[in-house]
Simulated assay, not measured.
Amino acid sequence: MTTHFIELAQRAAADGQVTAEELLALRRQGWGDGIITREEAEALFALNNALEERSQAWVDFFVEAIGEHVLNGTPPRLQCSDAEAEWLIAQIDHDGIVESMAELECMVRIIERAENTPDRLKSYVLAQVEREVLNGTGPTRCGGELSATHISAAECRIIRRVIFASGGHGPAAVTRFDAEMLFRLKDETLAEENAAEWDDLFVDGVANYLKGFALENAQVSHERKLELEAFAADNTPNVARFMGKVAREAPQIGNHFGKVFGKRQGAPDYAALAAKGEAVTDHESEWLEKMIGADGEIDELESRLLARIAAEG
Score class of each variant (00 low, 15 high):
F213S: 04
R304K: 15
E197L: 14
T37R: 04
D60A: 10
E192N: 13
H169K: 14
A195V: 01
R161G: 01
W287G: 06
F202K: 12
S55I: 01
L182V: 02
A65S: 09
N235E: 15
E42K: 12
Q128G: 00
T189R: 03
A230K: 15
R27Y: 08
E105L: 11
A57S: 11
N135E: 14
M181C: 11
A218D: 14
G170C: 09
F257Y: 14
N217G: 04
L126S: 03
E155L: 10
A271I: 10
E64H: 07
V129Q: 00
A310K: 11
G73V: 07
A148E: 15
S55G: 06
W31V: 03
V162R: 06
A230Q: 14
S100W: 06
Q252I: 09
D199F: 08
R161A: 15
I92C: 00
W31Q: 08
E22G: 06
L215R: 07
L226A: 13
A233H: 11
Y270W: 13
V129S: 03
P139L: 01
H222S: 05
D299H: 09
H150E: 12
P139S: 05
G170M: 09
T117D: 03
I36W: 01
E39P: 06
R54T: 08
V239Q: 11
V70A: 12
A250M: 15
N72W: 07
H94M: 03
M243Y: 06
P118T: 10
C106S: 09
S221L: 05
A310C: 03
N116R: 13
E130F: 00
G16W: 02
S221R: 02
I309T: 02
D187R: 15
E53C: 05
A307E: 13
A148W: 09
T189P: 04
F45N: 04
V260C: 10
I111E: 00
A274W: 08
T2E: 15
V129M: 04
W287Y: 02
D282G: 00
R184S: 13
A102D: 01
I6C: 09
V206S: 09
E216R: 09
A85Q: 11
T37M: 01
V246A: 02
R113G: 03
T175I: 02
I66A: 04
M1N: 06
Q219M: 10
I309S: 03
R109K: 13
E7L: 12
Q219Y: 02
E21C: 00
G170Y: 09
W87G: 02
S285D: 05
I151W: 01
T19V: 01
G73H: 10
A272F: 04
T281P: 01
N72F: 11
R109E: 12
T19P: 05
N235Q: 15
H94Q: 07
A275P: 02
H150M: 05
I35L: 14
D282M: 07
N235K: 15
S123Y: 13
G143K: 13
N194R: 08
K122G: 13
T236A: 14
E278L: 14
E286M: 11
M107S: 07
D178Q: 03
I97L: 10
V246N: 07
D82E: 15
A83K: 14
L8D: 03
A154P: 00
G16D: 08
A173W: 06
G212F: 04
D95W: 05
I36F: 08
C142S: 12
V203M: 08
